[in-house]
Design a protein around this nucleic acid. Structure first.
Length: 571
RNA sequence: CGGGGUGUAGCGCAGCCUGGUAGCGCACUUGCUUUGGGAGCAAGUUGUCGGGGGUUCGAAUCCCUCCACCCCGACCA
């Protein structure tokens, strides 16, 4: 491709809407333009990258035996009502009506449609297993779209759905997809980790996420420093302290803490470590108020809370409920002196093992110190893991300690089971003649998100640095003074021709611009390899090769330049 | 949805407080010079000042209202 025939929409300055590096760079490099909140057009340079990602995903899905289909992005409400998700999905789903006032949605995902296809088309166990996938535009009306294509409302997703006759088969299909995903992200040249995950709204038993590692990621990943354990922090288990609870050694004492309503404040006021304090959080579930107790330096894991018996569908208690159940206001709450008929005490595993702790006195402007389970208040009604793990916690698999890194979720595989097949009556005739619901799995990859995540992971102050497999062009040929030197022009054209002839995606920047402009654009757009041709080098018979990550250029004899680059690409 | 902020040329911004009919840089067009890291000079082009309403002789500027976009939050008691 010649620059003169391409549309290079680079910008010197980033539009003010962009905050994150990848978002700014995608706009500046001319990959995308914003149409509205969470809506992006993809320009020619962006499309080239997107197609590369799609191609690798397709190849690996095909190789794993999945079959490509396309389902309509506009789907009738009836299907979603069958599974109850028409209501469940809530405002995330964009709902539309046709001229006859029939309700539709713009697909946020396609379990219902694919299950409908399965129940109509798949009749016998002999047809199983089968795995359908599509690469399609999805729409999710996110509460707050942000970070450009990383959390857009409209985005491209590869979604696959497997159908098996039994659970063992389904788990094998799941495994095949898991392995395919690993190959995809490896081939894309990204640093990633697969982690155990919460299955969330989609439901099902097993679930793994694929996270591209990047400091700006929205997700936190906990991994063991001594094993291959890795999990999303939403899911990572915080083990109970191994040491038994120490005996009470301090007397219970109530002291004023005027205006100090946080653990941090009390710890500072009393010059005590934050880890000695306990914070109380009141939740209401099933019309009963619960006091959740977390160590002062820990944070609540809302997903774990929802899994505690009796806390499914919990919400934060109102101020009125708090006062009525605990007797004191928020900020001064604790387990001592509660009427347990009115309130259930749920202690985090760590808190249950604490002694001589600091907590609220259930009275405005007072806290307690030297509080002890058993002596000062009854033992907790429930002890559960409800906090987020922190770095240094023991790994749940018993090997090593946990460390935390940030990641961007680009893939997610779910072992669904029969949730959708049962809800929609999708059955097949089994070997014994009985009708059985399909065992399903579903597998997503955020195609557009991968592009943003790759940039987030691979950029510097000058611009993008594409991994070779995703680069819009493999190599930039940059002639310095093409419009004034016949020798430069001839050498650049020859080199470009050699590369193109060898099937290398070369970009010849034949614009009549100063060298700085050409070089800056190549660096901004992130073309990973470049060959500079200038009069200076021609005198020596060389081209200057430089990888986007190289600090210095390497002189390469002109005649060998094309082969030199091809060797780098192969490696 | 709550809080904060921003909307002025394609992009980045000033002007607004203290009303007087719109400006800077980049980009774009033309010409000349220049050409190994985002050129210089000269001459141009580009605006319903987010929309609507109001106050006023007069509104980008003051008031009301709506809209769009961005950031933080929507747990931490």
């Amino acid at each position: 491709m010649r620059a003169s025939q391409f549309f290079l929409a680079t910008l010197k300055e980033a539009p003010q809407e962009a905050e994150l590096a990848s978002h700014k760079l995608m706009l500046r490099a001319g990959l995308i333009r914003k149409l509205g909140s969470g809506l992006y057009s993809w320009l020619p340079a962006g499309i080239r990258v997107l197609r590369k990602v799609e191609r690798i995903v397709r190849e690996e899905m095909d190789r794993a035996g999945a079959l490509e289909v396309i389902m309509p992005p506009v789907q009738p409400a009836e299907l979603w009502q069958e599974t109850g998700r028409w209501e469940l999905y809530g405002p995330m789903m964009l709902r539309i009506k046709d001229r006859a006032e029939r309700e539709f949605c713009y697909a946020p995902t396609a379990e219902e449609v694919i299950t409908d296809i399965a129940r109509k088309e798949l009749r016998s166990y002999r047809q199983l297993p089968v795995n359908f996938y599509q690469i399609q535009t999805k729409f999710r009306d996110e509460i707050r779209p942000r970070f450009g294509v990383l959390r857009a409302r409209e985005f491209s997703m590869k979604d696959a759905y497997s159908f098996d006759a039994d659970e063992a088969g389904m788990l094998a299909s799941y495994r095949r997809m898991f392995d395919a995903y690993g190959r995809i992200f490896t081939r894309l040249g990204l640093k990633f980790r697969s982690v155990a995950a919460d299955s969330g709204e989609i439901g099902g038993s097993a679930s793994n996420e694929f996270q591209v590692l990047a400091d700006s990621g929205e997700d936190q990943i906990a991994y063991s420093d001594a094993s291959d354990y890795a999990a999303n922090i939403e899911q990572a288990e915080a083990l109970a302290p191994s040491a038994p609870r120490a005996a009470a050694s301090a007397p219970l004492k109530k002291d004023p803490t005027p205006g100090v309503s946080t653990c941090e404040g009390v710890a500072k006021l009393w010059n005590e470590p934050l880890a000695r304090t306990v914070k109380a959080i009141l939740l209401t579930a099933n019309d009963r108020v619960h006091m959740l107790l977390i160590r002062g330096d820990h944070s609540v894991n809302e997903i774990k809370v929802g899994k505690v018996p009796g806390l499914k569908g919990w919400r934060w208690s109102t101020d009125g409920e708090i006062l009525a159940a605990a007797g004191g206001p928020a900020g001064y709450l604790g387990p001592v002196g509660l009427d347990r008929a009115k309130i259930t005490v749920v202690a985090d595993r760590t808190v249950a093992a604490m002694s001589d702790f600091i907590c609220g006195a259930n009275e405005k402007d007072f806290h307690l110190r030297g509080a002890n389970w058993g002596r000062d208040c009854p033992e907790p009604d429930l002890v559960a893991d409800v906090r987020n793990v922190v770095a240094g916690d023991p790994s749940p698999d018993g090997k090593g300690r946990l460390a935390l890194v940030r990641g961007i979720e680009v893939g997610h595989v779910f072992a669904l089971g029969r949730r959708y097949s049962e809800a929609m009556g999708a059955t097949f005739t089994a070997e014994d003649g009985a009708q059985r619901p399909f065992e399903m799995g579903c597998y997503g990859i955020g195609i557009t998100r991968i592009v943003g995540a790759a940039i987030e992971q691979n950029h510097d102050e000058r611009g993008i640095i594409w991994p070779d497999p995703m680069a819009p062009f493999a190599v930039a040929v940059i002639p310095l003074g093409l419009h004034k030197s016949e020798a430069v022009k001839a050498a650049a054209e020859k080199l470009y021709g050699e590369l193109a002839g060898a099937g290398v995606e070369a970009f010849l920047d034949d614009r009549n611009e100063r060298p700085g402009v050409l070089l800056a654009d190549q660096e901004l757009v992130g073309i990973p390899h470049r060959l500079v041709i200038g009069e200076r080098g021609l005198k020596e018979g060389i081209a200057e090769y430089q990888h986007r990550r190289d600090a210095q250029a390497t002189k390469v004899p002109l005649a060998e330049a094309a082969a030199f680059v091809r060797a780098r690409l192969a490696g």
